[in-house]
Nucleic acid binder design. Structure first.
Lengths: 111, 111
DNA sequence: ATCGTTGTACGACAGTCATCGTACGTTTGG
DNA sequence: CCAAACGTACGATGACTGTCGTACAACGAT
C-alpha cells in the first residue's frame, strides 16, 4: 500500500476536470451514493465506511472512477484510503453543479 | 413516420425521470451539445438542425437516449421530429440541475 | 406520380462498463 | 510473530454504448 506498491493515486488537476467525466461518474447510483455520503460527512471517510452492497473489488473500481473524474481526492493513511469530495475544485470549475446534483440525489426519489 | 409506423415515441412521466438517467444522458459530449443548443433556442428544433458531426443514425440514437431519460420531448410534425427541453419537468423534479449543468457546459472549457 | 428531405430500423462492431472472485500486499492489534 | 482488517491487482464475463452503413418509410413539393 506504500508508494512503492500503489502506483501514485493520480488525480486530475482542477483545470483538467471534464464536465462529461464528472457527470458520468455521478450517473451511477453507487457512486452517487458514495458522493452523497461524502458530502454528508464533510470530512474524510475510508472506502469501507460506506454501506454499499457491491463487492470490495467493485467498490475499488467505483472509487477509482470518482477519483479519475476529479470528484474525490484520495489519501493513503495506513491501510485505509481516506476520501474527500473536491468541493472547492468542482465549485470553481463548474459552479453549483455538484451541490445541485447532490441535493437532487438526497431529496429526489431517484435511485 | 405516422403512428402506424413509428411505435409511439414513448416519454417517461415526470415522476419516472431518474437522476442517474439524466446525468448519464448528459454525460456524452454530443448529447450535452444537443441539450445546450436546445436550451439556447428555447423553442422547438428539428433533429437535423443541430451541427453535430456524427452520422444520422448516431444522431437518432442520441435523441432517443435523451428522450428516454426524460431530458427532451419529441413531437412529430410531418417528416420532422421537433424537440424541446423538458425544463419544467426537470426543474420540478431536480431543481437547478439542468440549469447549472448547461451553464457549466457553456462557460466551462470542458469537452 | 415521383423525387428529395427527414428521420427511423436493423444489423454490425469495437470499446467500455459494472460486476465478481481470488490472490496479494500493508498495516495494525493481540 | 501471527492473524485480522483494509484495500488493490488481475482476470473474466456479460451487458451496454457509441459509432456506422444501408435500407426503408412518410411527408412535401414539383
Amino acid at each position: 500500500m506504500t508508494p512503492s506498491t500503489v502506483e501514485k493515486i493520480a488525480h486530475p488537476a482542477r483545470d483538467e476536470i471534464e464536465l462529461s467525466d464528472v457527470l458520468h461518474a455521478l450517473s451511477d447510483p453507487v457512486r452517487l451514493q458514495i458522493a452523497a455520503g461524502l458530502a454528508a460527512a464533510s470530512c474524510e471517510r475510508s472506502c469501507g465506511s460506506f454501506d454499499v452492497r457491491v463487492s470490495k473489488s467493485t467498490c475499488t473500481h467505483h472509487f477509482k472512477v470518482l477519483r479519475e473524474a476529479g470528484v474525490i481526492h484520495q489519501r493513503q493513511e495506513g491501510t485505509a484510503r481516506l476520501n474527500t469530495l473536491r468541493v472547492d475544485d468542482l465549485e470553481a470549475r463548474f459552479p453549483g453543479v455538484l451541490e445541485t446534483i447532490l441535493r437532487a440525489a438526497l431529496s429526489g426519489a431517484s435511485s
